[in-house]
Write a protein that binds this DNA or RNA. Structure first.
Lengths: 334, 334
DNA sequence: TTGCACAATGGCAACGTTAACATTTGGGCG
DNA sequence: CGCCCAAATGTTAACGTTGCCATTGTGCAA
């Protein structure tokens, strides 16, 4: 029993309620031009039959899906969870849904992400870029399909949004200089990371802007082990009183590396990380770090599409600053 | 120019190619009953007009969306990223898409997740449960809408899938006993966690199955700090040679707590965690832990829906075992 | 009483696609 | 030469919804 052979449509509800299909539709949309008692009768019929509006029929009629497609080359990545939180929140706000797709990265092109998504019921596309797509310069979004890229690079035809990596470094460097440190050493990341390179630029240029020649950087590979090695290497450098690491894992590794050489943090050396990813994992260390607002990045991207809602809005580029979170790993020399 | 007023339909392509709409449709689906040269002509027309099949029209006609809805109460949660990777991979395999929705947890009911999703273009629903919904016992899935719950609890009407938490503890306890430890101490988690409680049960029952009365457990709160305190507390217990912590953060905290009391890991005490979440964050410690296969959990859920593809498949319950990953934090006493 | 405005409801068509059935064409064979 | 079959293509209708316009009913002013 209760075996629903086929889905219930407005027609069925209309028949049961003894009204026209149009009146059912109007009731669904709570139009003021339906008498309350009629509405109630229709609603009762809907309940009895278990009516649920059919999305396909509706979209076909309206020519809109109220859905934003999110294309990712890699699902597992720092901050993706928070970004998704943002996607979902913004979509929710606009009455939109999110359709998620993993795009095969061979080739790693915006074109492949875009065409993959365009077969799905979406009104706009968000592409999360992890590295430089081969066609970044030449790509053009599908006509009528607003496309937002999550990247720090600016694109002439697509809006873009990302964390402000340069500003992140600026904040850290100025914070440390403001605490009386004469210079800031840097533990970098592999050169293929766009955001990491931008952090490096920010560190370098901010120091120069303060008339300080950046010291030799130590190259890391994102892991705590590489941070550990960097910490040991820097422990013997008497000019090194402040270290800025490209991520928290390296910062933590660095602290342990310094300790292994008899240096104490923050008494002897100050250390700052980026990412706020240590959370509750480490018991003995409240690291000073920069917290990015990936949720806001995600919201901005979806807002751009769902907020425009047809009205073609212009291309915009947004960089969202992080917030420096003070822990216990920086000493104030002043 | 190239301003696309309205979308191109089969009709437009048909006109340009000088064939019927049906032939266009057949070409799209690469039907063998269209002559190769005709196909080529149609394809050329599609390219020229930039034709993309309309999802709504297709779904309306077919009565299927080829989409699985994923409802989450909390997007940010351990393992969610891996699960999503699994959702996306399985969806891809079946030619399905994933629609993601965050469900407001007030009230925290399966009903609210289900009705939220049912307004969207989905053929089936996956609900990720983080805790016990108020209506778990009474919930019935919408007719014709296959519903899979990601939870360790079994439901009479919905298929379920999750990590096998009991087996995880069994593996850890038997591994430690097999290394000659006489008993295994346990750092638990807050009582509201379903999975945590199941780990606790597994620990207790496996010890009993080996004729060992479980020692007093130490209650933690998932944080490294609580693990640190637990480690300090257990450091003075001479019977404690092996500690099993409900997650990696507490395990790591515990190691540091033991060290602070002069105990060394693994020489004096062995420590095992769960989650494999330390990754590259910690420089000096390759923790023995249990790695869950959340990607497989996600794949199973979507497979169940997309794989059935209309043919109503029965209710199944799946628990996916984790894998014990040997690090350097367990001593073999044999 | 008539006309008119307005509220409530109904009828129809169209959105884009494709299943089912219908038609045309060409070729092989008796 | 006519018949039949198969391959290739065309025609029609329907999926569920809703915008547009038409119709009906009701109360009120002229």
């Amino acid at each position: 029993m209760a075996a629903v052979k086929k889905s219930v449509s407005v027609k069925d509800v209309a028949r049961l309620a003894g009204v026209s299909e149009q009146t059912v539709s109007r009731t669904v949309h709570d139009s003021p031009s339906v008498r309350p008692e009629t509405k109630e009768r229709v609603r009762a019929a809907m309940r009895e039959l278990g009516y649920r509006p059919n999305f396909a029929g509706r979209s076909l009629r309206r020519g809109k899906f109220k859905t934003v497609g999110v294309a990712m080359f890699n699902i597992t990545g720092t901050g993706n969870l928070d970004r998704m939180e943002g996607f979902a929140a913004a979509a929710d706000k606009h009455g939109y849904a999110i359709t998620l797709t993993k795009v095969d990265g061979h080739p790693y092109t915006l074109e492949s992400a875009s065409s993959r998504m365009s077969a799905l019921p979406v009104d706009g596309i968000v592409v999360i870029m992890n590295r430089m797509p081969a066609d970044f310069g030449t790509f053009e979004p599908l006509p009528g399909m607003q496309t937002v890229l999550v990247t720090m690079l600016e694109h002439p035809l697509c809006s873009t949004v990302d964390n402000d990596q340069f500003d992140c470094s600026r904040q850290v460097v100025e914070y440390l200089l403001g605490r009386g440190h004469k210079t800031v050493h840097f533990i970098s990341c592999p050169e293929r990371s766009l955001s990491g390179m931008r952090r490096e630029e920010g560190w370098r240029e901010t120091l120069r802007a303060h008339g300080i020649e950046p010291p030799q950087l130590v190259r890391g590979d994102w892991t705590a082990q590489s941070g550990y090695a960097a910490g040991q290497a820097l422990a013997d450098d008497p000019t090194c009183t402040a270290i800025y690491a490209s991520n928290d894992a390296m910062a933590y590794g660095c602290i342990r590396g310094l300790e292994s050489r008899g240096k104490r943090v923050p008494q002897d050396v100050s250390v700052v990380g980026v990412d706020d990813s240590l959370g509750d994992i480490v018991p003995d260390c409240r690291l000073t770090t920069v917290r990015f607002d990936n949720k806001r990045v995600g919201m901005w991207a979806v807002d751009k599409i769902a907020g425009a809602d047809g009205g073609a809005s212009g291309v915009e580029h947004m960089l969202i600053p992080g917030v420096l979170v003070e822990g216990d790993t920086v000493r104030d020399l002043c």
